[in-house]
Design a protein around this nucleic acid. Sequence first.
DNA 1: TGTCATACCTCGAACCTCAAGGTATATACC
DNA 2: GGTATATACCTTGAGGTTCGAGGTATGACA
Lengths: 115, 115
Amino acid sequence: MGSTNPSFMNGVPELLVLRLLQSREMYGYQIVQAIRDETSEVVSLGEGVVYPVLHALESSGAISSQRRAVNGRSRIYYALSPQGVTRLTELTALWSRLTNAVQQVLESEGHAAIV
Amino acid sequence: MGSTNPSFMNGVPELLVLRLLQSREMYGYQIVQAIRDETSEVVSLGEGVVYPVLHALESSGAISSQRRAVNGRSRIYYALSPQGVTRLTELTALWSRLTNAVQQVLESEGHAAIV
DNA sequence: TGTCATACCTCGAACCTCAAGGTATATACC
DNA sequence: GGTATATACCTTGAGGTTCGAGGTATGACA
């Protein structure tokens, strides 16, 4: 309980990471901030969430990594693989289906047994 | 992994249960089926999910229970308390904020650093 | 030298969910 | 009576995710 983020965001990290990598290569630290920025702080994932997701995604072949030095700093850039694109498509569809289903319950008026 | 429901539905059970109880009193078994029906099977929560949620909600004072016999069957009807209404309002707002934030990331085109 | 921002990482605790199992009663059928 | 099915409640163990806290190291700046 009592977490910064509400607890109904299972799987969202994977989806967001995949989506961000679709537009361009990014490194972990950058992803952490991008999520915070692009959601106006609504979703704020710590490094402890993002790095493990990145590693899992790489093991599963959804993304590939490439160490690169920029401004004397070592960064690990991640890029979406074809498998990652597929995975992203799946998760996006799932997300859409789920939110629509929940919305349906939230918006339905009576919930009457028989009308 | 590999579950029937995708794994990004943390906390959704609590929200759905609360919402269903807002319209009318219901008992556990009925809630299980209502969720399945009203979401067209997209969200299908087992009894092992719903009953614990119900118990937790009751301990926290969000709902109250009343054992009743109907057709020779013993049922435990749950009703939303004022605290439950407040909780529902909160969770609904949270859900809305979260889905909008995710949607924003999913829909944004470039993710370009500087345009 | 000290501090800050960058950049990577891991670990344990806490939490949620699922599938599977268990109990008991009513109804319907043979 | 016996059996099966639907109703109705419940708990447990295993597996998964996420969080917060902590750790390491470099570059920039004062």
